[in-house]
């Protein structure tokens, strides 16, 4: 006999997020007032609105608080080593080009230890979406300084204030060749969703930075209050500047935050470049994983026609 469902069980089952989350793993490990959950919600909203086959979506994360996203999301998912989410995602995408591969990871993971991979994936215009949850700190290890920590901010390894110059991630991504670059704060959940929707449709390296509060470490060490205070700051001091010159969107300690879609341009992706190049050099017999380019194109066309027919 089935036992009647408790409220929590019913909630797990009936929550619309149950399509996107491994509900059996809830509640999650993130702190009160943390913004990662909001980013996950916004990502799920974007997936809901997309016409993607959910079986063809993969989530790859590195290490850290945001690194746990892959484990919570109900997709093919890989929780990898520190900094290596992007090369794992690259391998997955290239080995299985039908996949829509999304990397969700933190600022330290993606641009500190994984910085080399970040710049090269952007340079190659690798067809993956990278969502960077930027909370200006290494949360999981206790609030150390990261490559994005604003100068003067306090971190556990800069206990007298940070004296380094931080990365401005949109500028870095843009300079390295990313073809879609956007920034929002975790308060702007609808905008994050819209940007992720655009990024999922975009062909090539898309990068979305989301400024989020780390209440337990960054905010506490810098006496910035709780999650609500962080969102208030985002509310009061953010400004939407679509198409802004990425050289001018750096963030200083508690400064104005410029956000919006900064870069949106078309360029052949890595795989498109590979295929076009070899089709030119080798001709029609060139093939990838058992299929020649004409075969692939015919298949794609048939698929598109089938999709249109079903609509």
């Amino acid at each position: 006999m089935n036992a009647p469902m408790t409220d929590e069980e019913r909630f797990r089952k009936e929550n619309p997020m149950s399509e996107f989350l491994r509900m059996e793993r809830m509640p999650h490990i993130w702190c009160p007032g943390c913004g990662i959950g909001t980013v996950v919600n916004s990502f799920a909203e974007a997936l809901k609105k997309s016409d993607l086959d959910m079986d063809k979506v993969a989530v790859v994360s590195g290490i850290g608080c945001t690194g746990r996203v892959a484990g919570y999301m109900k997709f093919d998912s890989l929780h990898t080593t520190h900094g290596r989410a992007i090369p794992v995602a690259t391998g997955l995408k290239l080995a299985n080009p039908d996949m829509k591969v999304v990397v969700v990871s933190g600022d330290g993971d993606l641009t500190g230890i994984g910085g080399n991979h970040f710049i090269h994936a952007a340079r190659r215009n690798m067809d993956i979406t990278v969502i960077c949850v930027n909370n200006f700190t290494y949360g999981m290890t206790g609030g150390q300084v990261t490559p994005t920590t604003p100068t003067k901010a306090n971190a556990s390894t800069t206990p007298y204030g940070n004296y380094e110059y931080p990365f401005s991630l949109p500028f870095l991504a843009d300079a390295c060749g990313a073809t879609y670059v956007a920034r929002w704060t975790s308060l702007h959940a609808r905008n994050i969703t819209n940007s992720i929707s655009e990024a999922l449709k975009h062909k090539g390296f898309s990068f979305i930075e989301v400024i989020t509060p780390c209440t337990t470490l960054y905010a506490r060490r810098n006496r910035l209050g709780d999650g609500l205070d962080a969102l208030q700051y985002y509310h009061d001091d953010s400004e939407i500047v679509h198409g802004a010159d990425t050289r001018e969107v750096d963030i200083e300690f508690q400064s104005k935050i410029k956000m919006g879609t900064f870069v949106h341009r078309e360029k052949p992706t890595y795989l498109e470049a590979v295929n076009t190049h070899y089709a030119n050099v080798i001709g029609d017999e060139y093939q990838l994983y058992g299929k020649t380019t004409p075969e692939r194109e015919a298949e794609k066309k048939a698929q598109e026609q089938a999709n249109q027919g079903s609509k």
């Binding site: 989350l21 809830m26 943390c34 996950v40």
Partner: peptide, 10 residues
């Protein structure tokens, strides 16, 4: 529902 970081409202 979207802003709740705990997935605990819908």
């Amino acid at each position: 529902e979207v802003i709740c970081p705990e997935f605990t409202i819908y």
